[in-house]
């Protein structure tokens, strides 16, 4: 719903006019091109108690994703597969509009959209996470912690989740199940989110842009150029031509982001 916590208060009409006026001249409130994302920085291995982690800065949005891996029982309908579960916390320290308490619909949608990209994109090889068929499997918990909210949590969280998975080690020795091993990562699905502002479409909207956008579309693509997940949001619409354009832009931007995620910056600053 549009009265959501995502729209951080009432943006004055003046700002809306300003953003529209800039768009008509082909630019944006922070000087970016329409298809340009904010500076992206990813540091892996930030949280040492986690099996894998990554801290993501996308402009002024900051997200920390931790992966914990534990032993558990498989679901009855998938006895020969490990389990993936994704959760998101909009921590109240991240924005004056986030409140403590159980996850609201924004947090649930965020977690499910990130989960869909990772799951449908087969980012991790769940079949390699079976300890004893039908009895014991590895459960991979992806926990997304929003630390500073300046728009586009879908992408910052998606990048953090994928980076944290590539950083993760399955703690087999802790359970006396042999040697630790790297979490088997198969594919690299990357989400890119676009906002529709007036009749313009911009990539990676910041908070100001998000709060006046009429519609939002997230497209997750993998390294083969296949589409794995999509999610449209907000109360406006897209034309078919706009959707085609967004998918193409998502593939192009996604390819660049994938290189940053795979680039090795493993937090060796300590």
């Amino acid at each position: 719903m549009s009265n959501s916590k995502f729209t951080a208060g009432v943006i004055p009409e003046m700002k809306r006019d300003y953003i529209h006026r800039l768009a008509s001249k082909g630019t944006r409130i922070d000087g970016r091109n329409f298809d340009e994302i904010r500076p992206l920085e990813i540091v892996k291995g930030y949280a040492k108690r986690a099996e894998g982690s990554a801290i993501v800065r996308l402009g002024r949005t900051k997200v920390l994703v931790g992966v914990k891996i534990e032993v558990g029982t498989p679901f009855p309908d998938t006895p020969n597969m490990g389990i993936l579960t994704t959760n998101a916390e909009l921590a109240p320290l991240a924005s004056p509009t986030f409140e403590p308490g159980p996850p609201g619909e924004e947090a649930i949608e965020l977690a499910r959209v990130v989960d869909r990209g990772i799951r449908e994109g087969h980012a991790i090889d769940l079949e390699k996470l079976v300890i004893e068929e039908g009895e014991k499997v590895w459960i991979v918990f992806i926990d997304i912690h929003i630390l500073d909210y300046d728009g586009n949590l879908f992408d910052a969280s998606g990048y953090g989740a994928l980076a944290a998975l590539t950083d993760a080690v399955v703690p087999a020795s802790r359970y006396e199940l042999g040697d630790d091993f790297k979490l088997p990562v198969l594919h690299y699905p990357v989400p890119v989110t676009f906002a529709k502002i007036g009749n313009w479409i911009v990539a990676d909207p910041n908070l100001d842009e998000e709060s006046i956008a009429s519609a939002r579309l997230t497209v997750t693509t993998n390294e083969e150029g296949h589409i794995n997940a999509m999610q449209k949001g907000l109360g406006g619409t897209f034309t078919y031509e706009e959707v085609q354009k967004v998918i193409n832009m998502s593939m192009n931007i996604g390819a660049k982001v994938r290189e940053i995620i795979l680039g090795d910056s493993d937090g060796k600053e300590d």
Binding site: H226, I227, N228, T237, M251
Partner: peptide, 21 residues
Amino acid sequence: REIALLQMDGDMTYEELTGAI
């Protein structure tokens, strides 16, 4: 012919997806 809801999960090429839409 505007699109008010669009979700997707699975694996599709660009041609498959646009054909489906």
